[in-house]
Design a protein around this nucleic acid. Structure first.
Length: 565
RNA sequence: CGGGGCGUAGCUCAGCCUGGUUAGAGCGCCGCGUUUGGGACGCGGAGGUCGCCGGUUCAAAUCCGGCCGCCCCGACCA
């Protein structure tokens, strides 16, 4: 029962000056959310309705795979996070209580849920378990951005699975894949389940659920044929280099004064950028210098290199070049290098290449990896649009927002927190865990991004704050007013959620607001229609209108609504 | 953490460079009236510690310093 004349829906004509992302602008303009401080957002009534509808879809799907909803605190003892080595994470909010006891604000709940399981699960008979909750997460983000897309406080559904062994974890993971697929489908999002970086934590598998949209902060590599991966780990066959120079029997020096960049060398020698060997000197954590080489037209992918090295690294500093690498910037190359060399797979089999000569103003040409230097081969380049995906499709790259992730944790948390059980032989074994996050706010923002038009938001039916917006144009005492009032009652009785615009405002204002707020169906009751013996229905997506019969309007509206996306 | 920008009415902004009556506009808001199928109009009105602190000056929204807040790019992102 929602009459807009008495509902807190503060729509505004102008977007906040500092808003950039479409979802940020529209959610604010539509009176759904307001910012309290950087990265801290309030949900106003209509916005909260959307959030709750997404939550409910998630809840139903979690329950359907046997998930058990619970609730854990946001404030945790600091020692719990020290136990897993996560106390030093910069994003973790830290505080003290009045007695000086150290506390943290939870950024996720692996620690607490595992702590409980460690205490109350002892037998193989108690496993498996799927536990989940919807709870606020607190993260002291270095840079909140784009409205709801990256905030310091947000609600997440996080579930945790506990199994006897790796096979059990695989089954739990598969259940989540199915549940998450359905959640994304039911929210009517365009989405991809992409292979994800397992990160330094070294889990055994991870996927992210990505919703493509312009404001997304991740890049995903997609092939029309089904391949989908986060750019951080994406892998593909490179495009061939056109116009490679003739191979030589041996590398041959060539003067390249002042040519310190790929463009300069390629221009000077008249060869394509792909005929060059790009050398990237880095220092691996622990102090070892390493020369990474990729094709001249390719870029190094830091994530892939980090995963390959199983260690962090940083670019070498200027002064380290002469010292550790024995050469100068701009003329570094793998031929004759006195450090360990790692070459990207895209260089394998190429001949007639150009590389730095490891002396100023000089390169060498006719280089052949494998013949002229003997590198460690690795796939460490960033894939590019047009590359050939493993499934044969052509790679395209799109920005996307991560709305969910699923992760095989293994024993990462059960071990430090002592979550173990006795198996049927009476032997103690560690519990195998998985963790699975989903952000309703991000799903909500992604839906705005994916479906908005010039007029405003266009919610998918499943997550709209209201099913139908009823616009009454008549004034008290007029027939249109009475018909609208009666129809409001009938529509509510039909089981639909109705927003009834009974405000004293001009038709233009009401129409504009209805399209801004974005309910999937609008029904207008005005004098013009009544004279023709009908009402007007407008489908928000596409803004097409059609008449509704006056005598069975509520029924007809409900039928129409059921057909909407 | 590095780079850039902003802070004046509820919102979007002008004024600041070149200091000087009572700090402005549009939108929004309140009252009255006319309007009523695409943010309509007229008349009247309310609303501002010019982010905060300090300095310079006869005089500071305006010049200088410090602080705080917010946004964007990058780094970072269990």
């Amino acid at each position: 029962m929602t009459r807009l004349s008495s509902y807190f829906l503060p729509t505004v004509k102008e977007a906040p000056a500092d808003a950039e992302a479409l979802s940020h602008k529209l959610l604010v303009r539509a009176g759904m959310v307001r910012q309290l401080a950087s990265g801290l957002w309030t949900y106003l009534p209509a916005g909260w309705r959307v959030h709750r509808r997404v939550e409910q879809i998630v809840r139903e799907e979690m329950d359907s795979i046997g998930g058990q909803e619970m609730l854990m605190p946001v404030v945790h003892p600091a020692d719990l996070w020290r136990a897993t080595g996560r106390y030093d994470i910069d994003e973790l909010f830290k505080l003290q209580d009045r007695r000086g006891a150290e506390l943290v604000l939870a950024m996720t709940h692996e620690e607490s849920v595992t702590w409980h399981v460690a205490r109350d699960i002892r037998s193989y008979r108690d496993l498996p378990q799927i536990l989940y909750h919807f709870q606020v997460k607190e993260r002291d983000e270095p840079r909140p951005r784009a409205g709801l897309l990256r905030t310091r406080e947000f609600i997440m559904k996080d579930s945790y699975t506990f199994d006897r062994d790796a096979e059990g974890l695989d089954r739990a993971y598969e259940l989540h894949v199915r549940a998450y697929d359905r959640i994304c489908d039911r929210c009517r999002l365009e989405w991809y389940r992409v292979e994800a970086d397992v990160g330094m934590m070294g889990g055994t598998g991870a996927h992210e659920y990505m919703a493509p949209c312009p404001a997304g902060e991740n890049d995903v590599a997609l092939s029309g044929a089904g391949y989908a991966a986060n750019m951080e780990i994406a892998s593909a066959e490179p495009q061939a280099v056109e116009g490679l120079p003739m191979p030589l029997d041996a590398p041959e020096p060539v003067d390249t004064p002042g040519a310190t960049t790929i463009d300069a060398v390629s221009g000077l020698l008249g060869v394509p950028a792909g005929a060059l060997i790009k050398a990237i000197p880095v220092v691996v954590d622990g102090g070892d210098p390493l020369l990474v080489v990729v094709r001249g037209d390719h870029r190094l992918n830091d994530f892939k290199l980090r995963n390959r090295l199983r260690a962090a690294f940083r670019p070498a500093r200027e002064e380290e070049l002469s010292e550790a690498f024995g050469t100068v910037a701009g003329y570094i190359g793998p031929v004759g290098a006195r450090v360990r060399v790692m070459a990207d797979e895209a260089l394998r089999g190429l001949r007639g290449l150009v590389a730095g000569a490891n002396e100023p103003d000089r390169h060498v040409r006719g280089v052949e990896p494998g013949r002229d230097f003997d590198p460690e081969w690795a796939d460490v380049r960033a894939v590019e649009a047009g590359d050939r995906a493993p499934d044969g499709g052509e790679i395209r790259i799109e920005p996307a927002i991560e709305i969910g992730n699923i992760f095989k944790l293994g024993t990462r948390y059960s071990e430090p927190l002592g979550a173990a059980y006795l198996d049927d032989n009476g032997e103690e074994r560690l519990i195998w865990m998985g963790s699975y996050g989903f952000g309703p706010a991000r799903a909500m923002a992604a839906a705005v991004e994916q479906y908005a038009d010039e007029q405003g938001i266009s919610w998918p039916r499943a997550i709209s704050p209201f099913d139908v917006e009823l616009v009454g144009l008549g004034k008290r005492g007029e027939e249109a007013h009475d018909v609208a009032e009666r129809l409001y009652g009938e529509l509510c009785d039909s089981g639909l959620d109705i927003a009834y615009d009974d405000r004293e405002a001009s038709p233009g204002e009401k129409f504009a607001d209805a399209e801004l707020v974005g309910c999937p169906l609008r029904v207008t009751v005005g004098k013009r229609g009544l004279e023709a013996g009908e009402l007007e229905a407008q489908v928000r997506r596409g803004r097409s209108t059609r008449p509704l019969p006056l005598d069975r309007a509520a029924e007809a509206a409900a039928e129409l609504w059921r057909e909407l996306p």
